[in-house]
Structure formats: C-alpha cells, structure tokens
C-alpha cells in the first residue's frame, strides 16, 4: 500500500509503492529497448540514399501527378461499375454464409460447444486473419484473374468479420426475452423468430452496412493483384508511370469511398 508511516508517525502517501515504481520503469525500459532493437533490424537493409533523396522524388512524382488526366475518365466507368459489384455481391455472398456460422459460433445458440463451436470459430479466425488482397492473390492464381475472383475474395474475407460481430451480438442478447418466449411454449424455430431475431436485427443491419462500406474501399485496390475493378487500371497506369492517370484514379477512388460512406450513413440512419 502506498500509505506508510514515517518515523515521526505522520502518514506518508506516495502514488505508487517502490516495487510498483521499479516494475513500471523496467517495463518502459524494455519497451524502449524493443523499439530500438526492431528499428535496427528493420533498417539493416535500408539504402539511406533513397531515403534522403525522397523529398526530391516526391516533388518529381508530385509534379507529374498534376494536372490529372481527365480524359482517362472514359476508361474508368466500367471498372468503377465492376468495383461496386465486387463489393456488393461479395458482401451478399458473405452474409449468406456468415449467418449460419454466427449461430453455430454463439455460445447460446450453438448445437454443441465441444465440436461445432470450435469449427465455426476456426472458420472465423482463418477468414479474418487473411486480408482480402491475399485472398485475391490466391484466387487469381486458382480461378484466374477477373471480377469473379474479386467477389469471392471479398466474400471469403467478410465471412469472418460479419460472423464474429454477429455472434458477439447474439451472445449479448437479453435472455429474459427468450425466457418469456419459451414460457409461451414456443418451438426452437419460433424462439429464433420471436426471441432472437428481433434483438439482433439492428446489429445485423449495422454490421452488414459497415462491412459493405469497408468492402467498397477494399475492392478499389483488389485489381492490384488482378482481381478486377479500378485497381487493374491503377496497376496498369503505375506500370507505365502514367502519373496523371494515377491521379485521376485516386480521385475516382476517393469520390467512390466518400459516396459509399454517405450512402451507408443514410441507410443506417433510416434502419436504426
């Protein structure tokens, strides 16, 4: 306890005990040491000439990026349509697969905590740990480049996300409402319909919209690995160092993201 008695009997108060103070200092010291060590290892191979040269490079690229090449817009409408489709269809597919996974993973709805729940949780973790771009990389290698690979990549990445948030929402539902429905003599499906669904619908809508919003962002860059959409054009423009086109694409991406944010905010507002 930080309160001790000094020799003359007066109570002394210190914020921390001496032991806690030492532990704290050692903790900070270890953190700093870890940072320095990581910094050393990371920068081992860094060519500092490039780093010092970066401002000049940045200025050079910046000057090439402006003005944006507006005529390139004509080539971007179709990829933009693809991008939106990748996000929307991918989210839909993910929702269809994520809902059962969520119910299997939630402690209060899973048929078996010993066997089914771990499998469902593994699906969630595996899907979440792998970024949509890596899923894209894999799927392009497997089923070939294009929009279809993008949709599947978005779907596979989103299953874990939606299922995780949804099963947490299911676990947090108010048990007394279920009890009340049970007390009426309802069957398991009726319980689902009257007791659980009304409680999780707002969360479900919110999660889906949230993920759709994220998916719009992700699908703008999926093309970098060949999975269709605006990213394909971005990759092509960077390969030929056409920085004016790159700027145009950036502006389109930014506008798409802003519009999607606005749309999802509007829809969320009207739903919840």
């Amino acid at each position: 306890m930080p309160i001790t008695k000094s020799e003359n009997g007066a109570a002394v108060w210190t914020h921390r005990t001496p032991k806690a103070r030492i532990v704290m200092w050692v903790g900070w010291l270890l953190l700093v040491a870890l940072f320095i060590f990581c910094w050393q290892v990371m920068t081992e191979g860094t060519i500092w000439f490039f780093v010092y040269d970066a401002p000049r490079q940045a200025a050079d690229i910046g000057s090439r990026m402006f003005p944006p090449k507006w005529s390139y817009m004509d080539e971007l409408w179709w990829p933009l349509w693809d991008t939106i489709n990748i996000a929307t269809l991918g989210t839909l597919l993910a929702v269809i697969m994520a809902v059962p996974v969520a119910f299997l993973a939630a402690r209060n709805t899973t048929p078996s905590t010993k066997f089914v729940r771990p499998v469902a949780l593994f699906i969630i973790v595996a899907s979440r740990s792998i970024n949509a771009l890596i899923w894209g990389l894999l799927l392009v290698a497997i089923i070939g480049p294009g929009v279809f690979a993008g949709i599947i990549a978005i779907a596979l990445r989103s299953i874990g996300f939606i299922a995780k948030l949804l099963y947490e929402a299911i676990e947090e539902i108010d048990e007394t409402q279920i009890e009340a429905i049970n007390a009426t003599g309802a069957s398991a499906m009726q319980r689902l319909d009257y007791g659980i669904t009304p409680q999780i619908t707002p969360a479900f809508a919110g999660i889906t919209l949230f993920r759709w919003d994220i998916n719009i962002r992700e699908s703008t860059v999926l093309g970098l690995v060949g999975a269709g959409g605006l990213g394909l054009k971005l990759q092509a423009s960077i390969n030929v160092l056409a920085w004016g086109q790159v700027t145009t694409i950036f502006i389109v991406i930014l506008a798409t993201v802003l519009v999607s944010e606005w749309v999802s905010a509007k829809v969320r507002h009207s739903l919840i």
Partner: peptide, 21 residues
C-alpha cells in the same frame, strides 16, 4: 484515412525505394 494502406504503400515505395522502410 482516405486511402487504403496499399495505395499509400505504392506512393511511399515510389519515393523511398523498395523495402521495409
């Protein structure tokens, strides 16, 4: 927040060269 990490990475790679920096 307006751009994906990967897009920022493209720009930084162009400026600072390849590698973890």
């Amino acid at each position: 927040r307006s751009f994906q990490e990967i897009i920022i990475a493209i720009l930084f790679v162009a400026m600072f060269g390849f590698g973890p920096f």
